[in-house]
Structure formats: C-alpha cells, structure tokens
Simulated assay, not measured.
Amino acid sequence: MDNIIEIKKQIERICSSQKPKEEKLQQICDYLASEISYYDWVGFYFKNGDKKELKLAQFFGEPTEHTIIPFGKGICGQVALSNKNFVVQDVSEQDNYISCGWKVKSEIVVPIFIDGQNIGQIDIDSHSINPFSSKDEELLEFICKKVSFFI
C-alpha cells in the first residue's frame, strides 16, 4: 500500500463532512474498496444494543447472510471479546471462522472504541492469501479512530 497518506487524507475529508453517519460509513467502505485492490469486502459491524452480538451496518461487496454475529463466533465475534486487531492471512487455517463466501481467503478486523468501550469494528475480506501488512492495520486503526468521533 503505497498511497496510505493520500488515503488517510480522503478518509479525513469523508469523516469531517456534514453528511449523516450512515452515508459517511458507506463512503468509507466504497472508497477503501476502490483504492485498495485486495479489499474485496469492506464493512462495519456495531454492537447490537445490549445484546452480546454484532449487527452489520454499511458495507461494500457481495451481500452476506451474516448480518448478526454472536460475540465469540468467527473473527468478528472474537474481536468483540478480545478488543484486539485480528489478522488472518489464510482463513483455511482458522478453526473459529465464519465463511462469507468461497472466494474469501483472508480477513482483517480492527475494533472501534469510544471511551474505552469496544462499540464495533471494521471488517475487510480479501480474495488473496496473505495480503495484509502492518500498513493495513495502521490505516484501519486510523479509520476506526476517525469513525469514533462521529458515530
């Protein structure tokens, strides 16, 4: 990922716009998918009220049947409990993985915090094995921080 500085600037512009939060989240998904070739599915999941589950919000990519994910289930559900980034370079090596489609080969999930509470996450699926680097984590952490200001 060579253009991380430019991507961050554009994310900054999206997040500081006066548009409704849903529109900003959708713009982030669409923008990341258009800019980063190996981001084949980009979406946000948020804690579903007081329930111990995540609910799918805005996303880019093929529709998924996983609109509700219980805490602890799959990569997203594990991040909801661990409060830590989870990078899976090859999903076939992951026992607790929920398949969103046969094309998905890898996944990265980064939590969003407000006042120290994990309120959601950004989830990226890729059709490539081993595509993610520390730059991806840096960018997604940056995005999660920006999203926490308007969500």
Rank of each mutant, 00 (worst) to 15 (best):
Asn48Leu: 07
Phe46Asp: 02
Phe46Arg: 08
Leu25Ser: 03
Gln27Asp: 13
Val42Cys: 09
Glu23Tyr: 01
Trp41Tyr: 08
Trp41Ala: 01
Glu35Asn: 10
Lys51Tyr: 11
Lys21Gln: 14
Ser37Val: 04
Gly49Gln: 10
Asp40Lys: 02
Lys52Tyr: 03
Lys51Trp: 01
Glu53Ser: 15
Tyr38His: 15
Glu35Lys: 14
Ser37Arg: 01
Ser34Asn: 14
Gly43Met: 07
Ser34Thr: 14
Ile28Leu: 10
Gln27Met: 08
Gly43Gln: 03
Val42Trp: 06
Tyr31Ile: 02
Leu32Asn: 12
Phe44Gly: 09
Gln26Asp: 02
Lys52Asp: 13
Ala33Val: 05
Ile36Asn: 03
Val42Ser: 01
Tyr31Arg: 08
Glu22Gly: 02
Gln27Ala: 12
Ile28Gly: 10
Glu23His: 01
Val42Met: 01
Tyr38Asn: 12
Leu32Trp: 12
Glu23Leu: 03
Lys21Ala: 13
Lys51Thr: 09
Asp40Gln: 05
Asp30Met: 03
Lys52Thr: 06
Ile28Ala: 05
Gln27Leu: 09
Trp41Gln: 06
Leu25Arg: 08
Gly49His: 12
Val42Pro: 04
Gly43Cys: 06
Leu32Gly: 14
Tyr38Ala: 03
Asp50Ala: 10
Asn48Met: 02
Asp40Ile: 00
Ser34Tyr: 09
Asp40Leu: 01
Lys55Pro: 07
Asp30Thr: 11
Glu35Gly: 07
Tyr31Gln: 07
Tyr39Trp: 08
Lys52Met: 11
Gln27Arg: 09
Asn48Trp: 04
Lys52Cys: 00
Leu56Tyr: 10
Gln26Arg: 09
Lys55Ile: 15
Gly49Asp: 14
Lys52Glu: 14
Gln26Ala: 02
Phe44Trp: 06
Phe46His: 05
Cys29Asn: 07
Gly49Lys: 13
Trp41Ser: 05
Gln27Pro: 00
Leu25Ile: 06
Lys21Ile: 15
Asp30Phe: 00
Asp50Leu: 12
Lys47Glu: 05
Lys52Ile: 00
Asn48Thr: 00
Leu56Asp: 11
Cys29Gly: 04
Ala33Arg: 12
Glu35Thr: 07
Gly49Ser: 04
Phe44Gln: 02
Gly43Val: 09
Ile36Leu: 13
Cys29Arg: 05
Leu25Lys: 11
Ser37Asp: 08
Glu35Ser: 15
Ser34Arg: 14
Asp30His: 04
Leu25Glu: 12
Tyr39Leu: 05
Lys47Val: 15
Lys51His: 12
Lys47Gln: 14
Tyr45Phe: 12
Ile36Met: 08
Glu23Ser: 06
Leu32Phe: 07
Leu56Met: 14
Phe46Ala: 05
Ala33Cys: 06
Lys24Trp: 04
Ala33Thr: 04
Gly43Leu: 06
Tyr45Gly: 01
Trp41His: 05
Ser37Glu: 10
Lys55Arg: 15
Lys51Gly: 01
Leu56His: 10
Phe46Tyr: 15
Asp40Pro: 02
Gln26Gly: 00
Ser37His: 00
Leu56Val: 13
Ser34Leu: 10
Trp41Asn: 03
Asp50Met: 10
Leu54Gly: 14
Gly49Met: 11
Ser34Ile: 02
Ser34Pro: 07
Phe44Asp: 10
Val42Glu: 05
Tyr45Met: 04
Lys55Met: 12
Lys47Ile: 12
Ile36Gln: 07
Gly49Glu: 12
Tyr31Cys: 07
